[in-house]
């Protein structure tokens, strides 16, 4: 199984991946609390970027409302924990189930009635906005006043209830990012992966070759939604507070797609590279400005915009594909 997964991957690529994984594993040993928080954020964006990439990068379906699945996952697990003391690992089942249902509903409405391209993207925004407004008035999860998880100073890590130190969350996120990478790699090499790429390139030609376009688009949405909701669960237990106004907000949906766009849509490494570049540089910039005593609100957004502009102008395929060619790793 593992041998087959590595089959055809350039040797050099495997070594680089192993080195990166080792580096990220050792990172908490010498990182300060602040650096660790940034490390967590980078991995978080690498993971959601990978999840979003399944839908857009593989199957060619643009979602601009992925905050919906983050939010649904976060609220499902957090509410079960707050109300019933249910472990997030069990809440995860509910989170994934609800997100898959939401994804299936959106996918069904869109694909059954031929809503495609930008119109599909608008539909995904609309559903995220429905959720944002709906959850603002959803009393069981405290509506717009926000849902808070009980917090204490933990001396021990309780992995079962996800209560503990940032280091625990960092390793959890690292495991998820690595898992998502392997999963996407396997998906891309499966029959489904070929069918997704075919649909992305030409749905008509794919159908003529026997691909049930509707079904495989649905799989892409549902798998992407499930993966994304997982990040929502971790998000909720890491930050311990949830506000519909924040978690479902469109800016969150946009933020999570910047990584894969800058790193390289449709590539496996792109979301990871993009997350490192964007989050790493943005936080570095913020720190630098702090040191210099310059306080300009919104500098991160301007930076994101600038990055996007430069990549679209000079590297329309993202940073990774040309970089991979330079490193001799191109498939």
């Amino acid at each position: 199984m593992i041998a087959r997964l590595a089959d055809g991957v350039p040797r050099k690529g495997l070594w680089l991946l192993a080195a990166l994984l080792l580096l990220l594993t050792l990172f908490p040993l010498f990182a300060s609390g602040y650096l660790l928080a940034i490390g967590f954020l980078i991995l978080y964006f690498a993971y959601v970027g990978q999840a979003w990439n399944v839908m857009m990068g593989f199957a060619g379906q643009l979602s601009l409302g992925h905050s919906l699945y983050v939010g649904l996952g976060a609220y499902a697990a957090a509410a079960l924990y707050v109300h019933f003391g249910v472990s997030p690992w069990i809440g995860l089942g509910a989170a994934i189930g609800i997100s898959m249902l939401a994804g299936a509903a959106i996918g069904f409405l869109a694909f059954r009635f031929g809503v495609a391209g930008v119109y599909f993207a608008i539909l995904t925004i609309a559903f995220a906005e429905f959720a944002r407004i709906g959850f603002d008035h959803f009393a069981w999860v405290r509506g717009s006043s926000g849902l808070f998880l009980p917090v204490a100073n933990y001396t021990e890590n309780d992995l079962w209830n996800l209560r503990g130190s940032p280091v625990m969350f960092y390793y959890l996120m690292l495991a998820m990012t690595a898992g998502a990478f392997v999963l996407c790699h396997a998906l891309l090499r499966s029959r489904m992966g070929y069918y997704w790429l075919a649909i992305r390139e030409s749905p008509e030609a794919a159908a003529a070759l026997g691909v049930n376009v509707f079904r495989y688009k649905m799989y892409a949405v549902v798998i992407s939604a499930a993966m994304t909701s997982l990040s929502g669960v971790v998000f909720a237990f890491y930050y311990n507070n949830l506000f519909p106004e924040q978690i479902f907000h469109i800016s969150r949906s946009i933020e999570l797609i910047l990584g894969p766009i800058i790193g390289g849509i449709g590539t496996l490494v792109g979301p990871i590279v993009g997350a490192f570049l964007l989050t790493g540089l943005a936080e570095g910039l913020r720190e630098l400005m702090l040191q210099l005593g310059i306080d300009v609100p919104g500098v991160k957004q301007v930076f994101y915009g600038l990055c996007l502009l430069l990549v679209i102008m000079f590297l329309p395929d993202g940073v990774w594909p040309p970089l991979a060619r330079k490193l001799g790793l191109h498939r």
């Binding site: 790429l197 075919a198 390139e201 030409s202 008509e204 030609a205 449709g266």
Partner: peptide, 8 residues
């Protein structure tokens, strides 16, 4: 009108 999967 040919419809290759251009990127593949």
């Amino acid at each position: 009108i040919v419809r290759p999967f251009a990127g593949l």
